[in-house]
Design a protein around this nucleic acid. Structure first.
Lengths: 197, 197
DNA sequence: CAGCTTTGACTGAATACTCATTCATTAATG
DNA sequence: CATTAATGAATGAGTATTCAGTCAAAGCTG
């Protein structure tokens, strides 16, 4: 191997790790398996990642960066909180549903240990929840949605629904598309936010 | 120690495993750690469980049996679907919130591998979801709740909300009680089920 | 440009562990 | 005594990580 564009290997390692970890789980995947699939030597992994766990973290961060980038881009143009929330729901299901291997990792493998989940939750997912809560608060402020429940609470509830749909899809063997549930979820969520009678 | 009441040790091992796994995670807990806390020898564990994973499974099944037993008992006396669903929400939060160590295991540690989660999901959690869907379908049948969404879907959505609240509580460091969120969750869930305007 | 030097990305066998599981032995019991 | 629960040291399989060495390319020099 001469001196090929550095950075290609890092991507190759992350791609290989996604496939292997989705198939065998984090603990069932050895560093050697990832190296083999990526077409690099075991040691090469350690030129790009300081340890096995960092591969998993990088995987998640790469995915989350794409997610938030696309989210920010798409939401910018939308006029009201209703349109934005609907788009958030659609995007969530669309992006998680786009790559089953990655979905297995985000919905199952990443929920490893308290310490791990705690850290992820606090950082990236926390920001996502806050963004959702802001949209909901806006809808509350203009009288569109119920105000008897806290926007942060409502955001968590909506996230819970989305997350459960995603996990259910990952675990279901049938060959459905996650996106197909978007209408039902939108119906549920908008229903739940209507002002109380 | 030769022949003391058999069965006590099994419980002791499960209790010890709950504490250790909650503190260090499943993979961070060694069989020796569980044995030490339970006050038995390493080998004794294998008189009661065929391997380490079976300890985790037994743990979950013991908890789930208590859960469904109490659920069945409490729901029997309630007149309508509304009362039953409210009680399901309250019980879910009450029982998960009653033991933080156990909650760490059900909300975090058990979600380890696809294979594992898949199996649990299909069996015990599947039965729980079906019971909830039955209550919702009943409410739909008597015109109490919206009929434009499938009862099975609605049950999953409600479960998602409950599960997210539980996970959020487990990860939050503040010393709140999970039960304290019951009113908000009930408000959200009943709101989401109202018939569409 | 032709030889020479330097570089550092890459390799993969060897290391240095950790732990689940076993089983020969011990001791309580009826 | 015979039986059997219980023990815990020994085993050995499995694997993350290291590191001494390789070699293609880039830089240097006259």
């Amino acid at each position: 191997m001469p001196r090929p564009a550095t950075g290609r290997k890092k991507e190759a390692i992350l791609d290989a790790a996604t496939v292997e970890i989705a198939a065998h789980g984090y603990h069932g995947t050895t560093v050697a398996m990832i190296a083999r699939r990526a077409g690099v030597a075991d040691g090469t992994i350690y030129l790009y990642f300081s340890n096995k766990e960092e591969i998993l973290i990088s995987l998640f961060e790469r995915a989350m960066d794409l997610f938030t980038a696309q989210g920010a881009r798409e939401l910018a143009g939308l006029p009201g909180p209703r349109e934005r929330l609907v788009r958030i729901v659609e995007l969530h299901l669309e992006l998680v549903g786009a790559d089953r291997d990655l979905a297995i990792i985000t919905q199952v493998e990443l929920r490893h240990s308290l310490h791990f989940l705690d850290q992820l939750s606090r950082d990236r997912v926390g920001a996502y929840l806050q963004a959702m809560a802001a949209v909901i608060a806006e809808g509350q402020a203009c009288g569109l949605w119920r105000c008897d429940l806290d926007a942060t609470f409502l955001a968590k509830a909506v996230f819970g629904v989305l997350d459960e749909m995603a996990t259910d899809w990952v675990l279901s063997r049938r060959n459905t598309r996650l996106q197909a549930r978007a209408d039902a979820v939108v119906g549920f969520v908008l229903g739940s936010l209507r002002p109380q009678a």
